[in-house]
Design a protein around this nucleic acid. Structure first.
Length: 581
DNA sequence: GATGCCTGCCC
DNA sequence: ATTCTGC
DNA sequence: GCAGAATGGGCAGGCATC
């Protein structure tokens, strides 16, 4: 298939908002693919050159692509950035430039050839590689017509923005068989345990649906991880799932463990299925010592642990264990605990569709007591009151929230199903988790937000001692489309051409448009953290303070000097609890 | 060798 | 991570 | 209610540059 034709289909998809219609279009595209080019084309449809979990990345994003585009079409960097801001999309910006400056290219590259070039770009590394990659992108652009240029840029950016993703493709695969969605479940089940749409599509082409039916979970092939839905009260939880198991929500990072005793292997996968085995040798050793099974796939939350105090460490410290170098030293400094909470496969048996209660028992039998692994404590409850008590206790201990798990629920791989429900302190609507902040400026935004001309706000708190506004966060969520438009109108009345003198802002947090301090908004956050880039409470070389997961609560009727003060921020930070095991 | 921009991946 | 929106 | 697309802080690491 010609890449230019492929891009015409993408363009057609971009103009389609009905997912059913997308399914028909994608299915047509899929049917036109030869088996040898199927996998590559599917990866490109996902804005990639390889499956999600392969560590093959372009290492080029908007900043470096702007340089590549500017060089390829011999225009100024600033001209590219201008188009990008105007259109909210670097792909469209490049398309525009290409049609103005390009040499009327007759593009006859195949999808396969473009994939190969993109793959080569992703594989380029080492001294001088930035310039090399920029040149390779330029070479590719020069071979393509303007429409193809639009999509090739978006593929590199990993933002195809066509309104479809995995699930729509799966429906399209089903449609390609007999114009129905009847096979969706089988394909989805196959995808859950072999999360590589290129491979799924290839199997479908070669062996049909029966080829997918045969697939079983396999040790060392990651399984798509289940996610929880969110609810905000004990009543809602009991109404939704009835009698359930409650667990503390541990603030570390998710690991899926693939263990084989006979091969003496352990592999660790992150939530996005990246292989993280080499990063956590202490966890690997713990698993070898404490797992009583010939083969198993199970999950847990890895969290840093302070041996002296017996407390879990905050996420900011735990995450330092995610590294490529100095692994052993850091492991001594920040040892990890693995809090296990589910098992998906054991000794030849798939457990995915077994009830949670049953999986839990198998897990308990499988994990021997020892220094690294433990099974998460649970409490089985059946009333909203019991949920409330458990939740309150968790909050008092400084935890971020709880999980409620349906006792008869299957492991919903990939899905955000209702078998697991997340209930966090910050959802509870308490005033203590909000701050009143001043809007200091805004960014134009990209994609969908371009039409509003605003995508994110820069927020600050007031420092009365210095009479300055110091940044605490940017914020890009919590407003409806209408509210964004209204906000843009309000802010335009306050727009200034230079950063106001009373603003204290790090270079890394500059915005497209500065505004005078006038509008105060109430912002909800999960936590206050120490920040290397936000200036709130920052003294000399010290760290400042920032918000974790900031979102709009309401607009306040207050003067900016009455916004939350730096002192308040610091006192909330100090009041944040530490977590006992 | 130190610094800073940029990216990818955790949440 | 959170949140909003079209289907 | 699902699927998708907007957006956040902040860590380590790659590379360019001083």
């Amino acid at each position: 298939m010609k890449f230019s034709h492929f891009c015409q289909v993408l363009s057609q998809l971009e103009q389609t908002s009905s997912r059913n219609q997308m399914v028909v279009i994608l299915s047509g595209l899929f049917k036109n693919l030869r088996p040898e080019e199927t996998a590559e084309t599917i990866y490109l449809l996902q804005g990639r050159v390889a499956p999600l979990y392969e560590p093959i990345e372009f290492g080029l994003s908007d900043k470096l692509l702007v340089r590549a585009i500017s060089k390829a079409y011999e225009v100024e960097n600033s001209a590219v950035v201008h188009q990008q801001q105007k259109l909210g999309d670097l792909g469209k910006a490049t398309e525009t430039i290409a049609s103005q400056r390009g040499k009327n290219v007759k593009s006859d590259q195949s999808v396969f050839q473009v994939h190969a070039r993109l793959f080569a770009i992703a594989k380029t590394s080492g001294l001088g590689s930035v310039d090399k990659k920029i040149n390779l992108v330029g070479d590719l652009l020069s071979l393509l017509d303007p429409l193809s240029v639009r999509f090739v840029i978006r593929i590199v950016l990993d933002t195809l923005r066509l309104g479809f993703s995995d699930m729509t493709m799966i429906e399209a695969f089903s449609w390609s068989i007999d114009n129905s969605k009847a096979h969706k479940l089988i394909i989805e089940s196959a995808y859950n345990i072999r999360p590589d749409l290129g491979q799924i599509a290839t199997i479908l082409k070669k062996d049909g649906i029966s080829g997918l039916r045969r697939l079983q979970p396999s040790v060392n092939t990651p399984i798509l991880m289940a996610r929880g839905e969110r609810l905000t009260s004990g009543e809602d939880i009991i109404n939704k799932i009835g009698r359930c198991a409650l667990e503390h929500k541990v603030d570390g990072f998710r690991l899926q463990i693939h263990f084989s005793k006979k091969r003496d292997t352990v592999r660790l996968f992150t939530r996005n299925l990246e292989d993280a085995t080499v990063m956590y040798p202490d966890v690997v050793e713990g698993i070898k010592q404490q797992i009583n099974a010939a083969e198993a796939i199970f999950e847990g939350e890895a969290v840093g642990y302070n041996e002296k105090s017996g407390q879990f460490l905050p996420f900011q410290e735990t995450v330092q264990r995610k590294r490529k170098y100095h692994i052993e030293e850091k492991a001594l400094e920040i040892p990890l605990k693995l809090i296990c909470f589910d098992v998906l496969y054991k000794d030849g048996q798939t457990l995915l569709s077994r009830p949670y209660g049953e999986r839990r028992k198998i897990l308990e039998d499988m994990v021997k007591s020892g220094p690294v692994l433990s099974v998460i404590e649970e409490k089985v409850v059946e009333t909203p009151e019991e949920v409330k008590v458990f939740f309150q206790d968790a909050v008092t201990r400084g935890l971020e929230g709880i999980f409620a798990k349906r006792l008869d629920g299957a492991y919903q791989a990939g899905a955000r199903g209702w078998n697991w429900i997340k209930y966090k302190r910050s959802y509870a609507g308490r005033l203590e988790d909000t701050l009143d902040t001043v809007i200091m400026g805004y960014d134009y935004g990209t994609g969908k937000r371009t039409s509003f001309g605003i995508g994110a706000l820069l927020l600050g708190v007031y420092n009365p001692k210095k009479d300055r506004f110091e940044t605490i966060s940017k914020m890009g969520t919590g407003l409806t489309d209408i509210e964004w438009k209204e906000m843009r109108q309000k802010l335009d009345l306050l727009k200034v051409s230079e950063k106001p003198a009373r603003y204290e802002v790090d270079k890394a947090q500059t915005v497209d448009i500065w505004v005078n301090p006038k509008i105060v908004i109430q912002v909800r956050a999960d936590e206050i953290t120490r920040s290397p880039v936000h200036t709130a409470g920052k003294d000399n070389q010290q760290l400042g303070y920032a918000l974790r997961f900031p979102r709009l609560e309401t607009i306040r009727d207050k003067i900016p000097e009455d916004a939350s003060s730096v002192a308040e921020v610091i006192s909330i930070y100090k009041a944040q609890g530490k977590q006992k095991v």
